[in-house]
Write a protein that binds this DNA or RNA. Structure first.
Lengths: 195, 195
DNA sequence: TGGAAATGTCAACGCTCGTTGACTAGAATC
DNA sequence: GATTCTAGTCAACGAGCGTTGACATTTCCA
């Protein structure tokens, strides 16, 4: 997904700070406005840089999106939990991810009208969510089915809370969210699959 | 929401057929591409008219969206069902609505980057979903909380299936969807609210 | 120390978009 | 039958966008 050498192996460039500034501004703009409405000019402005520099570093607008929208859901940090604990733990983990990382909002806002962003969401689903669900559920055979259901509930909640801002969904406090959605996720992980 | 006189009371205009043609083209374009990417020029082209005519009839692009995105979820057609039947019936009803009416896709695609569309979704939630949930659950006091949960699951599933097109979510057949999501909706309607 | 590379700016291009106002043809009305 | 209203077209505008290439400045290295 990221064909650049990792930060550890690559020798530092003098422009790294500027690149990071641009990327951070891009994430914020993409998160707030989505791909189409977020302009390179505005992003460059936020970063205190000329628009042409953004092109120099990231090729074009799609390249900037690709560089900015590479989320890490940190699925490996979730321990393998028994039934009765896994659902709520998962909900809590996702809530934290959504609130800590602008990228997820950016990606969701963008993916509804931009197919390369949607493709990236499918990749995140396949590479991060599905394996995690397979591990937690212990049901390798139905893992992608279960992962699809988990994703539908988690992303639906994020959509209603962070994007559409439905008042009763915003009003919910974190413990209530965890207690409300936890059993749903639990059932999607461990419930019997209908015939 | 719609300040024009209804079709029944207003005397017919010679241009009604053209207006309907434009509206239908707009719905399709908005559904397929979202507000920003759908251009008035393309919509006018689909309808076989000049772009200026769209402006004449709907004022501006926002007015066209407002006229086109006025969904009816047909909530009144859902009978008051007992526990054990309501969840699955609701899922089935929403599935049909999403597949029959382009507007819902258009509205969702648009609402992620356009606040007036998001406002319209909040209105649909408040005027159509919440009252229906209040009626079905019989729990007037917690109706908006329950409605928020129901919306999060239903819209999340629609998002994953129709917009993001996650493969395992597309692969599910209708009976499986109903059996999988039904119990979740059921719990959101009738389950005890956590403290 | 001198030249090459890297970093960054500036002005402009070509394109598309929403929107406007003048205009034409046909229907309705008196 | 003259006039007024409605339906629709046409060409153009101004603005904003992504993108480009030429240029200035600073840093690195032999």
């Amino acid at each position: 997904m990221n064909d650049e050498p990792s930060a550890a192996t690559r020798k530092p460039r003098r422009s790294d700070a500027t690149r990071a500034l641009i990327l951070s501004a891009a994430r914020e703009r993409f998160a707030a406005e989505g791909y189409d409405r977020a302009t390179i000019r505005a992003i460059a402005d936020d970063a205190g840089v000329d628009p042409a520099l953004v092109m120099r570093y990231y090729g074009n607008k799609a390249g900037l999106l690709a560089a900015a929208a590479d989320p890490d859901l940190r699925m490996l940090s979730i321990p393998t939990l028994p039934r009765g604990a896994a659902g709520e733990a998962l909900v809590q983990h996702f809530l934290e991810r959504w609130e800590d990382d602008d990228i997820l909002q950016a990606l969701l806002r963008t993916a509804t009208t931009n197919d390369s962003a949607a493709e990236r969401m499918r990749l995140v689903f396949a590479k991060q969510i599905a394996p995690m669900v397979a591990r937690l559920s212990g049901d390798e055979k139905n893992a992608s089915y279960r992962a699809g259901l988990v994703a539908s509930q988690i992303m639906g909640f994020a959509l209603c809370r962070y994007i559409l801002r439905l008042p009763p969904v915003i009003a919910m406090r974190r413990p209530e969210i965890i207690k409300s959605l936890g059993p749903t996720i639990e059932r999607y992980l461990f419930g019997t699959r209908p015939v």
